Amino acid sequence: MTDWAEIHESVVRQFRVAWEEPEPHAWDGFLDDSVRFVQPLVRDGVGPALWWEEFARIQALLPDLRVEVLRWAGAGENVFVHIRFSATAGGRPLTWEAVDLLKLSPEGRLLFRESFFDPVLPATALLRRPRTWLRWWRSGVGPFTSRRRFLPPVSVS
C-alpha cells in the first residue's frame, strides 16, 4: 500500500529545497521523464527539458526569484502547494502568490504540475517598470512567446 503522506512530505521538502537555490536542474530529483507542465507566462508542455528551458527564461528575467512555501495539503496522488514568489524587478520588490497542483506517482515522481495564479499581477508590475522591459523582452517570458523564434536558444547544461 502506498504511503501518500510520506510521499507528500518528501516531495514538498524537495520542492522547498529546490526553490531555496533555484536553477533549472534543481527539481531533477523528483521530475518524471514524462512530467507535464501547465503554467502562466511560460510554455506548457512535457518533459524535464521543457522545464529547464522555461526556468532558464524565468531566471533570465528575475535572477533573484525565490519561492516560499506557505502551506500545503495532500490527498492521494495530489498535492496542493500555496507559494509566494518574490524577486526584484526594476530595482523594486515584486511578489505574488500561487497555488501549484502537483500530481505524483506512487514512487514520488512529479507527473504533472499546474500553477494557478493571475499572470496580470506580475505582468502589470513589469509593465510599470521600464528598467525591466529589455530584460523581459530578451527572456522570452510572457504573453508574446511567438517572438521566441527571433531569440537565441537558451542553453541549459
Rank of each mutant, 00 (worst) to 15 (best):
M1I: 01
W4I: 07
I7G: 04
I7D: 05
H8M: 05
E9F: 01
E9S: 09
E9N: 08
V12G: 07
R13V: 00
R16D: 13
V17R: 13
W19Y: 02
W19Q: 02
E21R: 14
P22I: 06
P24I: 03
D28C: 00
G29R: 08
G29W: 11
F30S: 02
V35Q: 01
R36I: 09
V38R: 13
V38W: 12
L41D: 10
V42G: 05
V42C: 05
R43P: 02
R43V: 00
G47W: 07
A49V: 05
A49Q: 14
W51M: 10
E53S: 06
R57D: 07
D64Q: 02
R66C: 04
R66E: 10
V69A: 05
W72E: 03
W72N: 04
A75N: 14
N78M: 14
V79H: 09
V79F: 08
F80K: 10
V81L: 04
H82F: 13
G91T: 10
T95C: 11
E97F: 07
L101W: 15
K103P: 09
S105Y: 07
G108D: 05
G108S: 03
L110M: 08
R113H: 14
R113P: 02
E114Q: 15
E114L: 00
D118S: 06
D118Q: 06
L121R: 09
P122S: 01
P122R: 06
L126P: 00
L126R: 04
L127R: 08
L127H: 03
R128H: 12
P130V: 03
R131Q: 14
R131Y: 01
T132E: 13
W133M: 00
R135D: 15
R135F: 06
W137Q: 09
W137C: 04
R138H: 08
V141L: 00
G142D: 05
F144E: 10
T145N: 12
S146R: 14
R148D: 06
F150Y: 11
F150D: 10
V156K: 02
S157H: 13
S157R: 15
S157L: 14
